[in-house]
Every structure is written in C-alpha cells, then in structure tokens.
Design a protein around this nucleic acid. Structure first.
Length: 485
RNA sequence: GCGGGCGUAGCUCAAUUGGUAGAGCGUCACCCUUCCAAGGUGAAUGUUGUCGGUUCGAGUCCGAUCGCCCGCUCCA
C-alpha cells in the first residue's frame, strides 16, 4: 500500500471546505481576508484540542488554575506591556527592489556606518535626531525627513527611491462607548491573552490559595493586524491562543523554562502528532521579543515548511514589574518559606489553537492506494476526531435499522456518533475516513441472531465482530491504546 | 501595503476570431445492494468574484474593486 504525503496546504484547504471543517469568513460576500470560520466538523476538532490542552494544563497540575479575561482591557495595559510602542513599526519600501525596511533601523545602520568611518560628530547629531523623532512633524514624517536629508540608500539595491514611511500598528483599535468618536476613547482588541493573566495575577494570588510556583491558564481570542496574514488558518487576524503563565521565584526561571519546554513537547506527542514532524527551535538572542530573556518555538513540519505552533518564553519579571510601575499597585509576592519578598519571574507557554488544529489535520492527512483505488483518510488521534463512531445498517432494511438505532441511542451518551444509511457500505466507510472517524459499526443479518455487529477500524480498515454490549468497552480501549503510525 | 500570478456550479475543469454557459465528481430523492467510494432513474445548484466601460452582442477586450496564491516583514 503506497501512502502519499502532503506537499501543499491546498488539499487541506479543499478537504476542510468539502467536509465542513473550515470555511472562509463571509464567503457569500467575497470573503474577508485572513479570517476563517469553523464548520460542523472543525468546531468539534478544535474543541477537542482545546479540551485536551485545558485538561493537560489545569486538571493534571494541582498548582495551575484558569481564568477567562475579557478581550477589552484598559488602554494602559498595552502601554505597560510594551505593545503600543513595540507593535508599532514604521516601515519604508524601496520602490526599486520592492524590499521593505524598518525606517528607524535604516537610520541606525546609517549612523553605524558613519561611526565606522570615524565621523562620530555627524553620527551623534543624527542619533540625536533619531531619538527625538515624533517631536517635529510626526513619527513617520520625521523619519522620512532624516532619510531624505541624509540620502540613505537601500541596502540591497543601492537605490534612492523610497515610498513614504508608513506605520503598521499591529493592534486593532476600536472605540469604547457608543457615542465616542475621537481617539481619546480608543481601546484595543487584545493582541495577546497573556496580559489578561498578568492583570489578574494579584486577584488569583489573593483568592485561589496558590503558592509559588504556580500557573494561570487561559484560552481566548487575540487580534493582530498582521501586515501579511496568509496561509489559511496559519496566520489569521483573529485567532485563538492557549496560554499559561507560570510564576516562579527569580533564579528558578531557567530550570522551569527547560521543564516546560519538555512538558509541552510531550503534550504534542500525546495528541498523536508524529515525532519526526516536531522539533524545538530556540530563538537566537538577537531575535527575542521585547519581553523575553529566552525563547524557543515548538515547530511542526507543515506542507509550507517548519513553522511555529507554540512558543515557550522566559518573560522574566518584565510584565509584572511594568504593571507595578504603570498601575502603582504592588506586584510583589511574599515567600513564606524563603522569608523574602520578590516580583516573580514568569515562564510562558503560548500555543496557537488554530495552528494546532491545522497541524492536527496536516499530520493526520493521508492518501492511500488500496487495491488500485485511492482513499483519503484523516488518521487523527481518536480523542481528537470530531465523530468517534459511525453507525450503519448494512442495507436499508427495517430490522437492521432497528438495531442500529438502538446502538446509536446507547453510544451517543458517551461518544459523538453519526448514523448513516445512504449509499453503499463502502461509500459510507470512505466518507467517514475523510472525516477522521476512527470507528464504524455495521449491523448485518448475522448479527441479529447473536446480538453482534462488526466494528471497522479507520486506520487499517480491519474488521472485528463484537457483541453489542461490549461495544463501548472495545471503543474505549482502542481509544486509549491508539498510536500514530 | 508593494510586485507577480489567478478568479466559470460545492470541487476539478471545458466553452472556436467576441455569437444560446457545459461535463465529470460531489450533494439530495427514489430504486437496487449481505462489508470498502465508481448499478439505475430523477432533481437542485451559476447575475461567469463584483462594479463600470467598449460593442448590435462580453465568460472572452479595457478599467476599477474584492478575494485567493507566491515573495518582502512579523509572529501564536
């Protein structure tokens, strides 16, 4: 049997639409860029992943609790977090090479060049100008003026043919209050869920009887006005994060960071993601986010290449210190054991739920040759499968239907099930293969005599004859012992 | 956002120099069918992405706009 591997996202996009996993948002109006909706199967798959994460983080750790913070937050939160500043890149395009640069970086490079040439007076003067951008006409205009005055050329093409400097604010802004019009009432849609945890850190500490080290977990939507949002649900403007912030004593952060990196990697394997498609990629120091001391990606081998699904960050005491500074509220923790007071360090695990869903689909997708026929199958971990059990009468005869209905009624208490009597039996199996349904039960005439049915397994298409009363046990055992291949 | 490519039924694609929009698959209904998609009959589905222009006549030519794909940048 030959198995074809996935070489582009197209097949996943097609399958997602055809089977009802994922649709483009507002499709009947021509679609909305980089926004997607989950259909009947997609919502189940996504929820199963979310539930697995929540269980792994909170239920199996007695020192991790959950919160569900609002998307709207006080605007000061984003000043404190550094997003107002750091998420605000002034960009300029070289019309010749079509390359885009950060305007302030261009000027800094130019200053460095001047220094290398020994023109430090000129360099200092420029640095002074760069430091005071925004005080003359405006941030973009001031940067543009410097580039024009100094005739800074594009690094790659050597051309001096720039567009204007434009600002790419990655945060969505909206107005708070029905009558508000001006920017005084501007409020942001959160660009990450983490801040909802930090601002509730004291509340949790005061109410949940937790002691350091402890964690706070949260699942929720975040919004980023990405310059380039593409590649299906991989990079969306509205997306869902599953984040956990782990608060530790300073000095314990590096050890905790290593532990969480490992714990999180194991979680992916527990979802049945094949090990060869997973890897850890540490961030080089010069590419760290403004809040991080150390960071690593857990990457998955997507058809579009190795890409980040989860980030583990050592955020130090950056966030809590900043919130202490901006809010004027003490963020210190009094450690009874150590008899000392400190602002905890934070290790963050941050995973994209939509990316994770896409990963599950990509990892599970197979096209197999079976006796000259092709079969498309999603070999999802049974616990992630949108439908667990398909139930069919072999043919549309009343006596077979009767037993099938009875089995459906019994199993639907514990599993998501689907009854189907249309088309040939083979066709019904294949339909469920595409949906990733791991088990199909078929009621035949033999079984009416001794109260047995056949159960057919998605992965190898093997069948077993099972007593009707043992069905739930068999399914449960199979789900537990399932391994990816 | 900028540059390039693309846009016809749910999907894959046809449609002669500009001259009546079609097929296969899928979906649905009925029939047939005792275990791996391709048996029979029938049905639904399109302002050819959208808007405008040229023309007697536009899926086809022109313009704008929207969306998708690839690259530049950033991240979950």
């Amino acid at each position: 049997m030959s198995v074809k591997q996935l070489d582009s996202l197209d097949k996943i996009v097609s399958l997602s639409k055809a089977r009802g996993f994922i649709f483009q948002s507002s499709e009947i109006y021509g679609g909305l860029s980089a926004v997607y909706d989950y259909g009947p199967l997609g919502v189940e798959l996504k929820r199963n992943i979310r539930d697995a994460w929540w269980k792994a983080m909170t239920q199996t750790h007695d020192n991790i609790v959950g919160v569900d913070a609002a998307i709207f937050m006080h605007p000061k939160v984003w000043e404190a977090s550094g997003h107002v500043e750091g998420f605000n890149d002034p960009m300029i395009d070289d019309k010749q090479s079509k390359k885009r640069y950060r305007a302030d970086m261009l000027i800094e490079q130019h200053i460095q060049k001047l220094r290398d040439k020994g023109k430090s007076d000129k360099a200092d003067e420029l640095q002074q100008k760069l430091d005071t951008t925004g005080t003359r006409k405006g941030l973009c205009e001031d940067l543009y003026d410097i580039i024009m005055e100094e005739e800074i050329k594009a690094p790659e093409s050597g051309a001096f043919d720039w567009t204007e400097v434009r600002q790419f604010n990655l945060m969505f802004k909206t107005h708070y209050g029905a009558t508000s019009k001006d920017d005084d009432d501007a409020i942001y849609l959160r660009p990450e869920t983490a801040q909802g945890i930090f601002v509730n850190y004291k509340n949790v500490l005061d109410t949940a009887r937790v002691q350091i080290p402890f964690g706070i977990a949260q699942v929720g939507k975040a919004f980023r006005n990405e310059v380039v949002a593409r590649q299906f649900v991989f990079r969306m403007r509205e997306f869902e994060q599953m984040e956990m912030q782990y608060f530790v004593q300073p000095g314990e952060d590096e050890k905790s960071y290593e532990e969480w990196l490992n714990t999180r990697l194991e979680w992916f394997k527990s979802l049945g993601i094949r090990e060869e498609n997973l890897r850890v990629a540490p961030h080089p120091d010069d590419k760290l986010a403004h809040y991080a001391r150390a960071a690593a990606d857990i990457q998955f081998n997507f058809p579009i290449g190795w890409q980040e699904v989860e980030g583990i960050h050592n955020r130090t005491d950056f966030d809590l210190s900043r919130h202490q500074e901006y809010s004027g509220k003490k963020m210190e923790y009094f450690d009874q054991k150590e008899q000392k007071r400190y602002i905890p360090y934070v290790v963050e695990t941050s995973i994209g739920l939509d990316r994770c869903t896409l990963m599950a689909l990509c990892d599970a997708y197979r096209e197999e040759e079976v006796d000259g026929d092709s079969r498309t199958v999603l070999k999802l971990h049974p616990k992630l499968a949108p439908t667990k059990v398909g139930i069919f009468p072999l043919v549309k005869k009343p006596e077979l239907k009767e037993l099938a209905f009875k089995i459906e009624k019994n199993l639907k208490e514990d599993f998501t099930v689907l009854y189907d009597e249309s088309g040939s039996i083979g066709k019904r199996y294949r339909r469920q293969d595409e949906a990733g349904t791991p088990f199909c039960i078929t009621v035949d005439f033999d079984g009416l005599e001794d109260n047995t049915v056949t159960i057919r397994y998605r992965d190898d298409m093997e069948q077993e004859r099972v007593s009707v009363d043992k069905l739930d046990t068999v399914i449960r055992n199979r789900m537990k012992s399932w391994k990816s291949e």
